[in-house]
Design a protein around this nucleic acid. Structure first.
Length: 607
DNA sequence: GTTATACGCTATC
DNA sequence: GTCTGACGGATTCGG
DNA sequence: CCGAATCCGTCAGACGATAGCGTATAAC
């Protein structure tokens, strides 16, 4: 370990990364991270931490590189003067562009790169915009790679991809810093707490190393800075939930997107689940928060769902998502207004509610949100129960209304920012596979995997359904989760036996897998829903979109009892789609008022 | 030189 | 979003 | 009563479909 803190060389960082990559076990990794941070000058802690996280800046700043795997492949070709096809070929077999770069990088033994210098260069990339910016970005990165040693190149590339693959995540970094900066791993909570309310690990760790525990102690939520959202665990039945939580507060689970609102007087922010600042995208909701919230300064959270102003029915997720946009915001807002189902209060007028019990936060939220059924912000309904049958009934009622399911919460639990714990538990239809959409899919090909999957030689399956009339197989999903490692290997072996050089004539597909396969193997796939699809050919007629599975995962075992012709048919998928959209989709609250005419004249929420 | 389409990236779930 | 697999702390088991 | 075995929650990293945006490229 270095005892003096001169500027870190990038090679030192790369060496540390390489050690981490080779080290299994979080404890050992945390020790290495602690060593790295101990040898880092205070001023350089933020960049080192961001790089370790595979980022450049904290998420709410919205700094995007705009370079993904395709451009990166082009950069490698440029930097190492090899044909792009060669990079692509190597990528397919190695499953990691970092490794490809390392192997192409030759034998440069030393570089003059410093961490600060490399970091500065990387920050140049997102600044490029407008015509010619792609070339400028690739030039910048190619130049950086040109100055790097092979190992440095490996990690530069992975940093750009945001996939370090070191086996180190936030939790490990926090462990390391607790031991290193506070001298006690047990003080991890202090760092965690600060990180969860400020969402900027670089700055928090800088503070931890500079000021120690006392510097972190007073850090609470701050209006205008997003709090890392609490997440729910999954359980498969109402009984399981009651068994684990005892008494619960249960709420409907809406199929929209999560928003965290912050208010400071007239100023209102909105943050997405991944902490992006989306304030400008929802003027209707920010205005409503300003109008309806009886607190000058506050942080609250909810789920935003679109509805049809003519019928009051909720929109499918696909349509709700179109509200997350930069242009045509007012137009979209009047066509598809949003309702915000507020479900939590994190802060209000000087009071930090994070550590208060769920029940109290909810009570306070109800008290602070005013408004009629006409207003966009509505506090979610909730029941309280300790009986499994009651919870099950509530769940079924919600499904009957076309909702996604329920979220059950421990009434005495604090807001566990940044954690996915059992204080909140979600229950969805698909978790009970006997009432879910299960599809027997014919495999028509597979794709090479990346990272760990590359070693298995298979990353995902291309699945199709059968059209008996046309005697063709049309794709409906790629399946990338479900099988165990062993099953992946078995699948690959089986599929290789029926591999063919090119797309079989009976297969109708826009997606080109790495390996085509004669349609023989049938596999059971569970999905939450059917969506309209521009990519899959199932049900596709001309320019109209087809249909696909939402959240597909393979259930175990190949269906040996099924032949391709007895797999699920295209027709059946269409029927499933009609069934789900014909299902009574819940209506947004105001439309439950007695006067149906109220629904026919929505007021323009953008005004 | 202008407009339409294609592609890649990043975000949501 | 779903899912698997590894890890590490807590709990239970067996001698 | 202690060491070994087992359990269970957390963490990390694979993978899914889709929409909008910015830029590049093709078409006119």
């Amino acid at each position: 370990m270095r005892s003096h803190r001169r500027p870190l060389l990038f090679s030192e960082l790369a060496t540390a990364f390489a050690r981490l990559e080779a080290t299994p076990g979080r404890t050992a990794s945390a020790r290495l991270v602690a060593d790295l941070l101990a040898g880092t000058a205070r001023a350089e802690i933020p960049p080192v931490v961001y790089l370790l996280q595979g980022q450049l800046r904290p998420p709410y700043e919205g700094v995007e590189l705009g370079i993904g795997e395709r451009l990166l492949a082009r950069v490698l070709a440029q930097a190492y003067r090899v044909p792009e096809a060669q990079v692509a070929r190597r990528y397919r077999s190695a499953g990691d562009l970092g490794l490809v770069a390392e192997r192409l990088a030759g034998e440069r033994l030393r570089s003059r790169l410093t961490v600060a210098g490399a970091y500065r260069s990387l920050l140049e990339i997102p600044r490029a915009s407008g015509a010619g910016s792609t070339t400028r970005k690739t030039n910048l990165l190619a130049a950086l790679l040109g100055a790097a040693t092979p190992v440095e190149a490996r990690y530069l590339v992975r940093i750009v991809q945001g996939r370090l693959r070191l086996g180190v995540g936030d939790a490990t970094i926090i462990d390391a810093a607790a031991a290193g900066a506070l001298g006690d791993r047990g003080k991890r909570k202090l760092i965690e707490q600060a990180y969860n309310v400020r969402s900027d690990l670089g700055s928090v760790l800088q503070l931890a190393y500079a000021r120690g525990a006392s510097g972190l102690a007073r850090i609470g939520p701050k209006v205008g800075i997003p709090v890392r959202p609490a997440l729910a665990q999954r359980l498969r039945s109402a009984e399981d939930i009651i068994e684990r939580l005892g008494t619960v507060q249960a709420e409907p689970k809406y199929d929209g997107f999560r928003l965290q609102f912050h208010r400071d007087g007239d100023r209102v922010w909105a943050f997405s689940r991944r902490l992006e600042d989306v304030s400008e995208m929802f003027p209707d909701l920010t205005a409503a928060v300003r109008r309806q919230l009886r607190a000058r300064r506050a942080i609250l959270e909810g789920e935003a769902v679109g509805y049809d102003p003519r019928t009051g029915r909720f929109l499918p997720f696909q349509l709700t998502m179109t509200r997350k946009r930069v242009y045509g915001v007012a137009e979209a807002a009047s066509r598809h207004p949003l309702r915000l189902f507020a479900f939590d209060l994190l802060y209000a007028d000087g009071d930090d509610y994070l550590h208060r019990p769920q029940e109290e936060r909810r009570r306070r939220l109800v008290a602070l949100v005013r408004g009629s059924a006409d207003d966009p912000v509505v506090v979610t309904e909730a029941i309280r129960t300790s009986r499994a049958d009651e919870l099950q009934e509530y769940f079924e009622t919600m499904l009957g209304q076309g909702l996604e399911g329920i979220v059950a919460k421990r009434p005495d639990a604090p807001y566990r920012a940044g954690a996915r714990g059992y204080d909140w538990v979600k229950l969805k239809r698909a978790y009970q596979s006997r009432i879910s959409d299960t599809v027997d899919v014919v495999l028509v090909g597979y794709l090479a995997g990346r990272g760990a999957r590359a070693e298995l030689g298979i990353g995902s399956l291309l699945g199709a359904v059968y059209d008996p009339e046309g005697q063709r197989f049309r794709t409906v999903a790629k399946i990338g989760s479900g099988p165990s490692e062993r099953q992946w290997k078995e699948l690959r072996a089986m599929l290789n036996r029926s591999a063919v050089r090119s797309r079989p004539a009976s297969v109708d597909s826009l997606i080109v897998p790495d390996v085509w396969v004669e349609p023989r193997l049938v596999v059971e796939v569970l999905a939450d829903e059917i969506t309209r699809s521009p990519r899959h050919t199932c049900g596709k007629r001309g320019k109209e979109p087809g249909y696909a599975l939402r959240f597909p995962r393979m259930l175990d075992g190949v269906r040996v009892d099924r032949t391709p012709e007895t797999a699920t048919t295209e027709r059946e998928v269409l029927d499933l789609y009609r069934l789900q959209s014909g299902e009574s989709r819940a209506k947004s609250p105001r439309f439950t008022t007695k006067n149906p005419l109220a629904a026919s004249a929505p007021r323009d929420p953008t005004r």
